[in-house]
């Protein structure tokens, strides 16, 4: 599935929730089920700066596609990271670089992705794109 299609699908899923609590409960569930980063990659070098809770991100290239994995000490941060992984993982570097993560407003995650927020998720998107740049020449 293309990045935009996945985003549309997520927006659809989120539209089913009646209030913020259901939405957060879902994100917490996502956080528990995230594709966890391999222990050997859960190292300081893979930490995203600017988070109140530690957030690790790793990426590897397989058959021309990037596979991301992540982990965080905070479960909500982890849930949002899971959404980002679902959108960007298993995509080609050029698709990742040319994509926009524009559905955020609609699912009410904007507050978590404000550049001034102390959870580092904006830095996570940036780091995901850096990986895409690094891998696009390979």
């Amino acid at each position: 599935m293309k990045i935009n299609e996945i985003q549309a699908e997520i927006v659809d899923e989120f539209s089913l929730f009646e209030d913020w609590m259901e939405k957060y409960e879902y994100m917490i569930e996502l956080g528990k089920s995230i594709q966890l980063i391999d222990t050997k990659n859960k190292i300081d070098a893979n930490l995203i700066k600017g988070c109140q809770s530690k957030l690790w991100l790793f990426a590897e290239l397989k058959n021309g596609r990037i596979f991301y994995s992540a982990d965080s000490e905070a479960i909500i941060t982890k849930g949002i990271a899971a959404i980002l992984l679902r959108v960007f993982s298993n995509q080609t570097p050029s698709d990742i670089l040319n994509s926009e993560f524009k559905y955020i407003d609609e699912i009410g995650l904007k507050e978590h992705l404000s550049p001034t927020r102390a959870n580092g998720l904006v830095s996570m998107i940036k780091q995901m794109k850096y990986y895409a740049i690094a891998y696009s020449n390979k």
């Binding site: 957060y24 109140q52 809770s53 000490e73 905070a74 479960i75 909500i76 941060t77 102390a118």
Partner: peptide, 13 residues
């Protein structure tokens, strides 16, 4: 077993 950031986020809600 719960991170402070998660508590703070939900309290804010």
């Amino acid at each position: 077993g719960i991170h402070a950031y998660d508590i703070g986020t939900l309290l804010d809600k």
